[in-house]
Nucleic acid binder design. Structure first.
Lengths: 193, 193
DNA sequence: TATTGTTATACTCTATAACTATA
DNA sequence: TATAGTTATAGAGTATAACAATA
């Protein structure tokens, strides 16, 4: 849901990556021309940086950029990895469950699963009790790939958080979880339009 | 860059919102048809939740969902708000600078600015020294709207972080910033094809 | 030759409506 | 009537190539 890359692998020399270096100096304002010296092109982004959403978005994009590169050899984008991992840890899970867990809409999952199935990584088996549903399972190849990818993700995690101490790392994840688990749900349907 | 909403306003009764309730109970494995009671649909997402990227993405999406709703009355999506705010705080800024600050590609900014211009919120004036560039400025209406929107964003910020103490809030932003400022840049071009 | 702003365009992601087959 | 999976499709978001004007 946060992806942004050509599906093909081939370690892109093109991909966006580096967040713009911000060194806070106002643009040559029409009148007031008093800013920090080291601002080749930097704008004053201080207000935006005071917003959680802005920072979360920037952090997520940075991490994803790294993720995309490192997962390219597996030809897995974030969602693919998430689906694969979820199925690995929850054999027999249904599409419906995957959608709920990852906040993906059913129609958008269809294609994802189909690709994984075509690649021989995922298999569908009839659900034991509900004939409408299908249980998702990993093939042997799927299990191998998922294991490798998860190992890579774990390594990647350390690199991404290399600027953080172990404690900060845990704390950051905890705080993020707090935010998205508690965030005042958009009151779906509360609008007496 | 992280948006996801129809441009039209009208407080959506449809928008995605609530992150899936996760109550960690394995899916009914191939054989065992024994679901925990409170696991209507919950999958084991523990590994994904151990990843910073996953948590950052989820948090960002949650916040943006709220943002979209609250900014709907102003007909501003996150990027629009960012551009407007950047111009407000940096009168005379050029498209190039906006792009650098927000990590937007120039071709994609054109349409955004044009819309804001058509709405009478933004004006372009010739750059004082560079005849190629154009300085962006807010009209009176633009300033008013930006002020209102920024006030709303500030209020929103408090709601979003309502689960956090003041200290946690600051800490979270600091940690996120640390991550995306330090994240090992994807070494563009480091790949000896 | 490099850069600003731009057009055109392709590809991906996200969302809705509507259908089927089961429940 | 409601739900699981699906199709088709519309709409944002994101990316590249290429051009004119200027530096």
């Amino acid at each position: 849901m946060l992806d942004t890359m050509p599906s093909s692998s081939s370690s892109s020399t093109t991909a966006r990556g580096r967040p713009p270096r911000k060194t806070a100096t106002l643009a040559d304002t029409t009148a007031s021309g008093d800013h920090s010296p080291d601002a080749d092109q930097g704008l004053d982004t201080r207000y935006l940086e005071s917003l959680l959403g802005y920072n979360a978005r920037r952090a997520a994009l940075s991490i994803i950029a790294v993720f995309l590169r490192r997962m390219a050899p597996f030809d897995l984008r974030p969602v693919d990895f998430s689906v694969l991992t979820l199925v690995a840890h929850n054999p027999g899970a249904t599409s419906r469950q995957i959608c709920a867990a990852l906040d993906i809409l059913p129609p958008n999952l269809v294609g994802l699963v189909r690709k994984l199935e075509v690649r021989g990584l995922v298999q569908r088996k009839p659900h034991p009790t509900d004939r409408r549903a299908q249980g998702l399972h990993l093939s042997a190849a799927g299990k191998r790939l998922q294991r490798s990818a998860q190992a890579e993700a774990t390594t990647l995690e350390q690199d991404v958080a290399s600027a953080l101490s172990r404690e900060e790392h845990d704390q950051l994840k905890g705080l993020l979880r707090k935010v998205y688990l508690h965030t005042p749900a958009p009151d779906i349907g509360s609008d007496p339009g």
